[in-house]
């Protein structure tokens, strides 16, 4: 999926396809409007030979050129670049909905998308707090799922995400911590860590310092971690959150389970903003996207870095392959 065409999505997609960078990892099909791919090639200053197919199952493998399933649903010449467009948002949502149908029908093993505009999706009629909740709704998911943020050094998993800090503290429960830990363990196993070394971040400063400021570590987090350790999950914690990410960066952990949004996002954005990948974990279908945004400030200049999208493709391929086993 080529991303929102008002941004750098089509450009980074064209660059990845032109270089053939992730072609060794997956059979890649472009789903969207061929005119958006043409735009991406112009932005990137590159040519990608492609062939248009009506359906994913019509693509012959190995494909002679990049296969494109043309939905014909968005003419990018009608859009202003670098600006939020409800029309583009609607088309992006429609394209993702179609891809999800393909995936649920067994014709796609994973969905990778170049950067979207959340505001455009919202104004285009796809009103969800974040794209993960949109994917959960469109795949008919019930139960725990969550955003996973992957940088080369480690991955983070969330006990709570897009809620106020007050609400997040109320949601730090044994059930949610357990679900996040099990999800982290399963996802990192799929990435080849066996067993994954997990750290659980504390909620309070200095981990509550033995209950002096906050007792969630003693009452909730610690006992939950101990219970799951007894079941064989290689988790440690709660660990003071101002040093847990340093230790993960040094290679001590494969994953960090964080209690609230900014705890992990401050760390991953400082460490690997351009290399990072965001995965929606726990759904029937694998979803992955670069952590960076639509890059409105550099759109059309040909200087967008395709590294995040390439890494997203490789990671999705790996996660999908682990499911197929």
């Amino acid at each position: 999926m080529l991303g929102d065409p008002t941004g750098i999505g089509p450009e980074v997609a064209a660059k990845v396809l032109a270089s053939g960078a992730a072609a060794d990892a997956a059979r890649i099909v472009v789903v969207g409007d061929r005119r958006v791919l043409d735009l991406g090639m112009r932005d990137a200053g590159t040519r990608v030979p492609y062939s248009v197919y009506r359906r994913v199952e019509d693509v012959p493998w190995p494909a002679p050129a990049v296969p494109v399933v043309d939905l014909g649903n968005l003419d990018p010449d009608r859009l202003a670049r670098g600006e939020i467009s409800p029309e583009a948002g609607r088309a992006c949502g429609d394209t993702l909905r179609t891809m999800i149908e393909f995936a649920l029908g067994g014709r796609l093993d994973g969905i990778v998308f170049a950067p979207l505009s959340k505001a455009a999706l919202n104004r285009g009629g796809y009103q969800f707090p974040d794209e993960h909740q949109m994917f959960a709704a469109l795949t008919g998911h019930a139960g725990f799922f969550g955003e996973m943020n992957v940088i080369p050094e480690f991955a983070t998993f969330r006990v709570t995400s897009h809620v106020s800090l007050r609400r997040a503290i109320d949601l730090v429960t044994p059930e949610r911590i357990e679900a996040a830990l099990r999800l982290a363990d399963a996802m990192l196993r799929a990435m080849g860590h066996n067993p994954p070394r997990l750290a659980v971040a504390a909620l309070n400063p200095h981990g509550g310092e033995s209950g002096l400021f906050g007792d969630e570590e003693i009452r909730i987090i610690g006992p939950t971690v101990e219970r799951l350790r007894a079941e064989g999950i290689a988790a440690v914690g709660p660990l003071s959150s101002d040093t847990v990410f340093l230790r993960a960066r040094r290679g001590e952990f494969d994953g960090v389970v964080m209690m609230y949004h900014d705890q992990g996002q401050i760390a991953t954005k400082l460490l690997g903003f351009h290399k990072g990948v965001t995965v929606t974990a726990g759904l029937k279908t694998v979803f992955a996207t670069p952590a960076h945004g639509t890059g409105f400030d550099i759109v059309g200049q040909g200087k967008a870095d395709p590294g995040g999208l390439e890494y997203a493709l490789r990671l999705a391929a790996r996660l999908a392959a682990a499911r197929a086993v």
Binding site: L165, R166, I169, L203, N204, P205, H206, G208, E209, L212, F213, G214, D215, E216
Partner: peptide
């Protein structure tokens, strides 16, 4: 040095 729940 306060519990996170006290911060708001």
């Amino acid at each position: 040095h306060v519990a996170l729940a006290e911060v708001p």
